[in-house]
Design a binder for these strands. Structure first.
Lengths: 240, 240
DNA sequence: GAGTGGTCTAGACCACCAA
DNA sequence: TGGTGGTCTAGACCACTCA
């Protein structure tokens, strides 16, 4: 019928830990119990509990700190801030990043958006448009779509308050943490609306970045389309 | 002065294994000794040898096969073929891939290429130009540059013989295996030469993919620039 | 059945951190 | 000094492969 359910012990422990993260037993930034405590709670050896934590740490879902404990990862740490933003300047200079909100409105999900977010076509969504400025130069026109029922409380004031760091809003306001994302990249020519927003000529080549972000349990929660001017910036990727 | 040299045992074992890979003691596709043998050879427990192998397997440098042994990874397996090619068709269809060699000539390294390949500016290189056709449609114009001294024997006949699978050529002919790569993506407009090769109008937006590939020990060995038409294809990326 | 990797245990000691 | 994660060991048993 379906896949066999034999799972090594440490994977079952991992699933239990993930369940605790989904249920909110431990929120972003919290410490989870020590390896010994978890081993005792689940009736396994410390080594087995450790291996479950190992995998979650490798997926950037947990963070270990020697001597202190193991913590639920968060997008607010300096180390991992902008973890999903791969754009770097060609000359390697550091840059200030500024977020200019264009709009934040309620709308309904199109068929294609609904499919990607695994919600019903036509259901309520929040649609955000914004401009990202690197060192005061507008580089990215972003369009973000969120299922409205899960993201109550996301509005223009909140976005301003967090200076556009969406993932931190989701974490702080709603306890929703994005753990992975899938992106599709393509080169397109700027349409008139985009050209105006980015102060370009229509037809200018732009990097189109379409992203679906997932929370625990592979649940898609956010759809995003970024249109980027890549004259002085590159999208960096490491392949292994 | 520099970084402290205290390394856990298993990392030292890992370094020794990497050394064996660099020296060619085990070539692509070969089996390395079993965990017990390695443990005995290096005077550690099986668990420690295992942990060293674990890390190399996580980096796709070794491949474990339960019941059979541990093998040096290769680009010739079906599972990992085209591991570095992220382009997928929008509609998800399977495609035939054909390689059309345009030229394969000796040249000298420009300053920027030399810097990226960590060779002397002006030293001899091999420059390859080719067209990649997906389902008979030309989609990518590739320019590949290799340091000539390390890649003796790479020529037009060999490339035809391997149907353009460059990484398999490097492995089979020279025992050089690429273990990771760094890519920089940008959107550009097609210049006249590229437009002609891909049968497009000049200025058509193309995805520019610049790649440096590295072999064991983080040594850069290949530079590549691919210009891709992304009308029906996307570059897929998974972020964690 | 012999040999390989995969899991699990129990216990030891080390390195780091905070009070 | 006590608690945490990090390393290492020795031994057991399981799952898979192949002759």
């Amino acid at each position: 019928m379906s896949t066999p359910v034999f799972q090594p012990l440490y994977r079952q422990i991992k699933a239990l830990l993930t369940q605790g993260l989904i249920s909110g037993e431990w929120g972003p930034g919290d410490a989870i119990p020590s390896e010994m405590e978890l081993a005792a709670r689940f009736g396994v050896s410390q080594g087995t509990a450790r291996k479950a934590i190992d995998e979650l740490a490798a997926e950037n879902i947990l963070m270990r700190r020697q001597g202190k404990g193991t913590f639920v990862a968060t997008h607010s740490e300096n180390v991992v801030k902008l973890r999903f933003l791969r754009l770097v300047s060609v000359d390697g200079s550091k840059e200030t990043l500024y977020n200019k909100l264009l709009s934040c409105e309620r709308a309904t999900a199109s068929a294609s958006i609904a499919r990607m977010l695994e919600i019903k076509s036509g259901s309520a969504v929040i649609e955000i448009k914004r401009l990202l400025l690197f060192s005061n130069k507008p580089l990215i026109l972003d369009r973000i779509i969120l299922p409205a029922n899960a993201f109550k409380g996301v509005n223009a004031e909140r976005i301003e308050q967090f200076n556009g760091s969406m993932y931190r809003i989701y974490e702080s306001l709603l306890g929703i943490r994005m753990v992975r994302a899938e992106e599709r990249l393509a080169a397109i020519g700027a349409d008139t609306e985009t050209a105006e927003a980015l102060n370009l000529k229509p037809g200018t080549p732009l990097l189109s970045i379409e992203r679906v972000s997932y929370t625990y349990g592979d649940k898609p929660m956010e759809w995003r389309l970024g249109l980027c001017l890549t004259d002085d910036h590159h999208y960096m990727n490491h392949l292994e």
